[in-house]
Amino acid sequence: MMHEAITVEGLSKWFGRFPAVRNLSFTCARGEVLGLLGPNGAGKTTTLRILATVLRPTSGVARVLGYDVVRQAREVRRSIGVLTEHSGLYGRLTPRELLWYFGRLYGLPEEVLAKRVAFLLETLDLGEVADKPAEGLSRGTRQKVALARALVHNPPVLLLDEPTFGLDVFAARQVREFIRQFREEGRAILLSTHLMEEAERLCDRVAILNHGRLIALGTLEELRRASGLGRLEEIFLRAVGDDPAEPSSQNREMDTCGDLPTGNAPGRKG
């Protein structure tokens, strides 16, 4: 059984003349949470979209469970659960209908799907709202429904884009608990976030992106050791500079690896 669930090698994506992702390489193992950190426009969402097969890379290779995201897109899509940045729901459908809809799109047999839907509704504590239209649900509940949707086909790999964005403290905490649980289940999780505290709490390793480039990658301990700084926020600010829109001289140094590691060895969960 291969250890690496996600492999990215020299990945680039250009939108016209704008480089969204440049020569990105990293891996993510099963049972690992890899955090993608970066300011707005750093290339986090573009990377996730390439891995989710909805964007084609301009160059480079990305594989999920060994499947190429371009040539074996359907197999990749069967293997991943995606929580998008705007995890909108169909307001006129109930959570139960939504899960059945996506389960059928994933080709699950009816009896398997029935059990899976019941399991997810119970596990994510959605039983009471299961038959209410999604448009009337709170933001936190909607996010849990979106998570359930991403998990309906029990994927071994999860791509989560800002999973706690806009949630209150309680809902965010509950979602983090679920993510930990998914890791315990042995899923590989690629988590895009701009919340340093969340990354510190959840991620086994962190990849810092800026202007589409990978400027740091490692466990928190490795990053602390290399930078001599204690908190992830400080490490992040040093990596991206004070003004992420324009690379600082320090940032340009980071672009060429600087003093932070950009190694690709998959870290183990702590």
Binding site: A52, I80, G88, L89, F102, L105, A146
Partner: peptide
């Protein structure tokens, strides 16, 4: 507008 299209595009059907 609802942000649901991307969720649909990542499902296996062509």
């Amino acid at each position: 507008e609802r942000g649901t299209l991307e969720s649909l595009l990542v499902t296996p059907p062509s």
